[in-house]
């Protein structure tokens, strides 16, 4: 799959989706073989998960703070500032948490996975593994894919926690909404299954599956040149963003 002529955007996109789908089958078929590389999966979990924590936490905090501030001004028109805890929690669980986490993840971890695998291909590291009788799909691709899949819900949970903390910080600590009201409204309205599980687990697992697939696929099929790697990295971000938002709509429609 070298640089394709851009004759037809639609055909190209379809071909990419098709190839990515087949690549997913290859990945899934290699999962049993990659079980012996658990250590590598753990190491990748460190890179894509733990190393993304800072950006996720900072962004989660600010998203929650902005939400708290905006809601306070809007709700105070109706004298309903007490509901801000509920709205912060629901907005973050259902949409902002999974979506923003996935977008950040694509930018922070997806691109580095793509660039890393692309450079490994360009410098013959994948071929070298083949020669050392190590399957690069099982050793390189699958651990990164699984790590992304595992990291996303965890990052999303951290994002949500920081987001609610941020909303609480602005709403309760700075703007004086009653602490108990903030929490009691939230706990009375937010549902474990409909909000927390659907948002943090279902949505972010789906996003993790898609973003990781795009990142690994783009890296694995990069033309082995510096230009190819740069282009693949860009495509990871673009394709992931579109996929996340489109999938979010579909999932929301189904989960509601």
């Amino acid at each position: 799959m070298s640089a394709q002529p851009r004759r037809n955007v639609v055909t190209n996109a379809l071909a990419q989706i098709g190839e990515a789908g087949l690549f997913l089958l290859t990945l899934l078929a290699a999962v049993p073989r990659s079980l012996r590389h658990v250590r590598e999966t753990v190491r990748q979990l460190w890179f894509v998960g733990a190393m993304s924590l800072t950006i996720i936490m900072v962004c989660g905090l600010f998203v929650g703070m902005v939400l708290g501030l905006q809601l306070y001004y809007v709700l105070s028109i109706f004298g309903g500032t007490a509901a801000s805890g509920t709205v912060v929690a629901i907005a973050i669980y259902r949409e902002l948490g999974p979506v923003v986490t996935a977008l950040l993840f694509a930018g922070r971890a997806g691109t580095s996975v793509t660039a890393e695998i692309g450079l490994m291909r360009a410098t013959d590291q994948l071929a070298a593994m083949e020669m050392m009788a190590v399957d690069p799909i099982a050793y390189v691709a699958v651990p990164r894919y699984l790590a992304g899949l595992i990291a996303m819900p965890l990052l999303c949970a951290v994002f949500c926690a920081l987001g609610i903390f941020g909303g609480h910080l602005v709403g309760v600590t700075w703007l004086g909404i009653d602490n108990g009201t903030f929490w009691s409204n939230m706990t009375a309205t937010v549902d474990v299954w409909k909000d927390v599980v659907n948002g943090i687990l279902v949505k972010s697992l789906a996003f993790g599956a898609v973003v990781s697939l795009i990142a690994v696929y783009q890296g694995y099929t990069t033309p082995p040149t510096s230009e190819g790697v740069a282009y693949a990295t860009t495509r990871t971000v673009v394709a992931s963003s579109i996929a996340i938002l489109a999938l979010d709509f579909v999932l929301t429609a189904f989960l509601m």
Partner: peptide
């Protein structure tokens, strides 16, 4: 974080 959110911010 997940456990905290599930138990402390919801009806649980």
């Amino acid at each position: 974080a997940l456990a905290y959110l599930a138990t402390q911010t919801t009806s649980v």
